[in-house]
Design a binder for these strands. Structure first.
Lengths: 164, 164
DNA sequence: TGCAAATGGTTTCATATGTAACTATAACGG
DNA sequence: CCGTTATAGTTACATATGAAACCATTTGCA
């Protein structure tokens, strides 16, 4: 262990002015990002290696499992990803035979996307995993806290009203 | 507006089994990541362009503002970044004359890091900005919600006890 | 001592991601 | 109709990020 550890004093005795440094560990956006990244990473680790499936790809699969025949743009709306990310995720998914892509009748710019059998098979393995992780996360909170967290996230969520 | 929008039914009438698709917008890790990314991005936009300063660099500056003479590894601990990210951030900061790097007496592997005058000048502009953004974020919540959020994040935070 | 293992830090390489430019098709206005 | 503008999606480029290999130094210990 190293000989000296300077005391955790503030403003580094540097100059006359008060520098009011930010305390990262009490800074809300910082804490949010730590928690969020830790959680996402834990979940992703479950399927990332096993299925060679990225987070973005999984999100696309998740919406296609609920809404079939979406276009790439609609997928983007529902996943809060931008269209480039969706395009790339789809390229991999189609390539891997997990999603089928057809052309929309009457608008040949649009794709019509669906999970394939292989896609469904993966979905049906990953979805329960993800839910299990979510439960593990929530298990750290008591019921009251869980309820508050839900409400708070609703309030903080940028209004991103997907079509009903 | 396009002619048809398929109803939001589940499981895509695909096969006999129940597919139990994940509802992303109710999935906690997903919502967390949306909120976190939105907030971080909003803050970063403030200084990113103005000072050509990345989020990682700002975090390094923030800890150096509170603790002078840290080594890179100590910075990494306090920012929850990995050492590669810290190394890179430091390279840019030192290059830009915002952080000074010396060699530790008695352990020549270690660096001894400090903000320079230029670094302090930037810090003193960015820190209040960041705080203002945090206040804006919290303004969306009432007092009770703010308190709960703080407690909840504490509980969800991975135990990452930096040395006192 | 002296040498294996550990530590601080940087570099390398493969991937991921964001922005802007681009292609193709469709919608609109005269 | 025909040119302009808008939309769906992809490509290209630049930058960011993570994992592992890598150097230098220090520590531990026989």
């Amino acid at each position: 262990m190293p000989a000296k550890r300077p005391p955790a004093r503030s403003t580094a005795g540097h100059s006359p002015q008060e520098h009011a440094p930010l305390e990262l560990e009490r800074f809300l956006p910082y804490r949010l990002s730590i928690v969020s990244n830790t959680v996402s990473q834990a979940i992703a680790d479950d399927y990332q290696r096993r299925f060679d499936l990225g987070v973005t790809e999984w999100r696309v699969m998740a919406v296609l499992a609920r809404f079939d025949g979406l276009s790439a743009r609609e997928v983007a709306e529902r996943t809060a990803m931008d269209k480039v990310a969706v395009s790339r995720a789809l390229a991999r998914l189609v390539q891997a035979g997990r999603v089928s892509r057809a052309v929309h009748d009457g608008d040949r710019r649009r794709s019509v996307l669906n999970l394939t059998e292989a896609g469904w098979a993966i979905h049906d393995e990953v979805a329960p995993m993800a839910r299990r992780r979510e439960r593990e996360l929530l298990a750290k909170l008591d019921g009251e806290e869980q309820a508050w967290l839900g409400r708070i996230l609703d309030k903080l969520m940028p209004d991103h009203e997907p079509p009903p």
